[in-house]
Design a protein around this nucleic acid. Structure first.
Length: 854
RNA sequence: GCGGGCGUGAUGGAAUUGGUAGACAUAUCGGACUUAAAAUCCGUGGGCCGUAUGGCCGUGUGGGUUCGAGUCCCACCGCCCGCACCA
């Protein structure tokens, strides 16, 4: 007998699918459609095992939906703009486009052997001018619809390289290449007005029933709706034309605990002072040091500068509060000014202690030991829903929750004419400008007479020039000799092109819509979008829970407003699944200085759970670490496929862990997966030649088969791939041991192949054809469990005594509670526990359990 | 720092969502087949006590709710994801 040989059978079936056009998405009204999409990859150069897992999951769904009678759309493309291509050009020369397209070719070549059911005819890369030209058309439509704005934003400025840095290029507050201290600088930028949709994006989360609750919660917190008070502190002495400081606070109830006013270094008052006072200028320069991330701001040492200016408290004009410039206040938030209440905010308390400012509690706990912050305790910050005792209420009960107090405080302030209650959102507008070459050019022109003018649509795409160099920092578009110069689309006079390009999040915010009509002359084709949208199942990493998904939700709305998507697509992803990573053990030794040295898995021998190098040295095993090239704990899918075949890789990445969690890649696990597939192949080959007559064991096998159909179907439907695979293992064991007749075993083996076909499609096709299945298994209708074969007439119930399992009974399935109780109480173990007495209580959960309390 | 999540045998994990903890798989050990090895097949497989029937303990740690907790609540510890210019 020949053996399981994926190296010949996998290409054979891939060719068969190709020739039959099995996975070309077909629009037809006679079948329901199903659109399954995995987040498309960045073309980094090689696929990694995480891609294999991600795309295999999508493939299982796609193939399952195909066999349940759907027109399936399962496309693939490339998120191809971005910094790595420019960094490669800087480091090694060459052009970002060449680097990117070569990587795409490599990765496509690595992906195709996986046998994914992808409609490759729809493939595109976001750096194709055909794609980004349509993106420019969208930009122009958004601009005309008032969905885009221009204003200032803070960026990381590298004063040595004279360039804007991405957050990831700022390491410990220093530029990654220059090592210079980064400073925060303001620049005029383009913005999508996503904050206009804050309320809607928040409210609509409720309708996303098939999204993970945690993702919806993260988005809700990110959008961050808050109710607060906007009001002004009058200044004791006006300065440079300013006589008041506008603040927004979510805790107006603590207004009587106010201690100081804090303003951003970029606040208009701070800027005035900076221009006139070198000491203020020095402080502001110091305060602007470091990166722009929220994390950096929160973790930085809190610094303040006493301006000497004072404000009056709105409730008591004799009460004067000092105005500090503080480095932790961002101009982008609220009004760029706050009042500090040290008793009820730890950051304000640290600040107050550092600068010797007063601390006044406005409420204390209802009971228990409490050291007041004025006496050296921590800031008291209970949840707003907790009741506390107020020592300084204005118009509410002494015992009230923070929530009630805030509402009462807003009402009180409004009645006194001190400000007004407002609802604000944390969500900021989406700054899309990037001072980089390798992105979609922003299609506008700056004209001296006409101002900012959008490019004419017939001139799209505004293509990136090819003749650029990356030998000096900064954006090559800025210094390109001719590309910048153009004619104003409005008046025809000489003008300058915008040299900023778009954030790569823009590219990925509508690619799912483009897949429905990837060659259309407009961004989308409404008929195609009507048919294929929405994405029925979207699959990707949890790291995209907020930004990518929120931006896509905004884009879908904006595309609807501008007539590029139907109403129903305002929420473009019906269901979302976030999968875990693939991890791998790290093998580590130490050099003479105690520094870690890492070793590739293929250079390590595993014996008795220990790892040894070729020279016999034992290496430490660090399990389940995120794969990283520097730690050398990577496995190359290409090597796995050539060693075991794609089906083994696919089977393994699905088998060991629930899809939403991380899975640990182990050599022994991959080996075992391969052995199992070889066993299934052997089993099917034997069954193909079997001639045993029908017999008494047929029914037991078929019953088990129907149960397996049910379990595997449920598993696939609910993303329980690992559980489905466990059932398939169990059923393979049953089939291997079965003495049923040849016909029953053939039926069982064909069904087994069908149930395995979404995971191991090549092996499944091979078995299907071996056992005389009709056509391709990929097109065969999914097996349906026969309800009659699932019914059991008896059930085994565990008997607990005081919650501990002591015995079990087997009873008729529909036996009454009273009868079950009677049988349970008669059980030896129960009798022994009762010791002649009567039970205190008997709990009978039908079909589940009996618990006797003694 | 803030927001979100995760934690079960030597290992990856299962558990019908509050009802028999450890399915399925890996490592290990034992056996069959073989001159031998590989492959394959059968068995063992949380800890402790016991020849065994069985008993006690056990889901990161500590507490709580419940007839019953891996599952719910509170606190703590550890790890992971995100924090708006990485993709």
């Amino acid at each position: 007998m020949s053996r399981y040989d994926p190296a010949t059978l996998e290409p054979k079936w891939q060719k068969a699918w190709d020739e039959a056009g099995t996975f070309l998405a077909q629009r037809s009204e006679d079948k329901p459609k199903y659109y399954v999409l995995e987040m498309f990859p960045y073309p980094s150069g090689r696929i990694h095992i995480g891609h294999v897992r991600n795309y295999t999951m999508g493939d299982v769904i796609a193939r399952y939906k195909l066999s349940t009678g759907h027109n399936v759309l399962h496309p693939m493309g490339w998120d191809a703009f971005g910094m790595p291509a420019e960094n490669a050009a800087m480091d090694n020369g060459g052009h970002p486009a060449d680097w990117t397209y070569q990587n795409i070719d490599t990765m496509r070549g690595q992906m195709k052997p996986l046998g994914l059911s992808i409609d490759w005819s729809r493939e595109f890369a976001t750096c194709d001018p055909e794609y980004y030209g349509q993106q420019q058309a969208l930009f122009i439509d958004f601009l005309k619809a008032g969905l885009i704005d221009r204003k200032n934003a803070t960026v990381n400025w590298d004063p040595v390289d004279m360039t804007v840095l991405a957050n990831e290029q700022v390491i410990d507050g220093k530029g990654w290449r220059s090592g210079a201290e980064v400073e925060r600088r303001e620049l005029t930028q383009w913005f999508f007005k996503i904050s206009d949709f804050s309320e809607e994006l928040l409210e609509a989360l409720d309708g996303l029933d098939d999204w993970p609750a945690k993702v919806k919660l993260m988005q809700a917190n990110w959008i961050g709706r808050s109710r607060g008070l906007e009001f002004a502190f009058g200044m004791v002495e006006p300065t440079h034309g300013h006589d008041r400081v506008e603040v927004y606070t979510t805790r107006p109830d603590t207004l009587l605990g106010a201690s100081f006013i804090g303003i951003s270094p970029d606040h208009p008052i701070a800027k005035e002072l900076e221009a006139h006072d070198p000491k203020v200028a020095a402080f502001c320069a110091e305060a602007r040091r470091g990166g722009t991330t929220e994390e950096a701001l929160e973790k930085a040492e809190k610094l303040g500068f006493d301006t000497g200016l004072k404000c009056r408290h709105p409730f008591d004009t004799s009460w004067e509060l000092p105005i500090y410039i503080a480095n932790f206040i961002l101009m982008d938030y609220g009004t760029g000014a706050i009042f500090g209440c040290p008793a009820h905010d730890q950051r304000d308390l640290d600040f107050a202690r550092k600068y010797g400012l007063p601390v006044t509690s406005t409420f204390v706990p209802l009971s228990g030991d409490h050291t007041l912050p004025e006496d050296g305790g921590e800031a008291f910050v209970p949840p707003k829903s907790d009741k506390v005792r107020w020592t300084l209420p204005f118009n509410w009960d002494e015992e009230a929750t923070g929530e009630a107090a805030i509402d009462a405080a807003i009402a009180f302030c409004e009645s006194k004419g001190v400000g007004h209650g407002v609802t604000k959102f944390r969500l900021r507008d989406w700054g899309l400008s990037r001072q980089r070459y390798w992105g979609c050019p922003i299609p506008v022109v700056h004209c001296e007479t006409c101002g900012v003018v959008p490019e004419k649509k017939e001139n799209l795409p505004v293509e990136l020039p090819k003749d650029v160099s990356f030998d000096i920092p900064g954006n090559p578009l800025d210094r390109h000799p001719t590309w910048r110069d153009c004619a104003c689309p409005s008046c025809g006079a000489p003008a300058k092109r915008e040299t900023d390009t778009m954030d790569t999040f823009v590219d990925s915010s509508w690619y799912f819509a483009r897949f429905t009509a990837p060659r259309a002359e407009t961004p989308t084709d409404m008929a195609e979008a009507e048919y294929w949208m929405n994405v029925d199942q979207y699959i990707g990493g949890i790291e995209h829970a907020i930004l990518h998904l929120l931006y896509s939700r905004f884009f879908a709305r904006a595309m609807h407003i501008t007539g590029h998507l139907p109403e129903k697509s305002k929420e473009p992803f019906n269901a979302l699944f976030t999968q875990g990573m693939v991890t791998h053990a790290i093998y580590q030794t130490r050099d003479e200085n105690g520094r870690p040295v890492y070793h590739f898995p293929e250079d390590v021998d595993l014996r008795d759970g220990k790892a040894f190098l070729s020279d016999g040295t034992e290496a430490e095993i660090i399990p389940s670490a995120k794969m990283s090239k520097s730690k050398k704990n990577v496995v190359d899918p290409v090597a796995i496929i050539s060693q075991y075949g794609a089906d083994t890789a696919r089977w393994f990445v699905l088998s060991d862990s629930p899809p939403e969690r991380d899975v640990e890649w182990t050599a022994s696990g991959a080996e075992a997966a391969n052995k199992h597939l070889a066993r299934v192949w052997r089993l099917a080959s034997e069954i193909a030649e079997a001639t045993t007559p029908a017999g008494a064991e047929d029914e037991a096998l078929l019953r088990e088969m129907h149960k397996t159909i049910q379990d595997v179907t449920n598993g696939v439907e609910s993303f329980g791939f690992n559980a489905a695979i466990a059932k398939l293992y169990a059923f393979t064991n049953t089939l291997a041991k079965s003495r049923a007749g040849a016909e029953a075993r053939k039926t069982a083996a064909k069904t087994l192949a069908q149930l395995m076909s979404p995971m191991t499609p090549h092996l499944a096709e091979e078995i299907w054809s071996l056992l005389g299945g009709e056509g391709l298994i990929a097109n065969a209708p999914w097996p349906v469990a026969d309800e009659a074969m699932l019914v059991e007439d008896t059930v085994t119930l565990p008997i607990q005594v005081n919650g501990k399992r002591r015995s079990e009974i087997t009873v008729a399935k529909d036996l009454s509670k009273e009868e079950v109780e009677k049988i349970a109480l008669a059980d030896d173990a129960v009798q022994k526990a009762l010791d002649g007495g009567a039970p205190k209580k008997v709990i009978v959960v039908p079909g589940r359990i009996v618990n006797v309390v003694v």
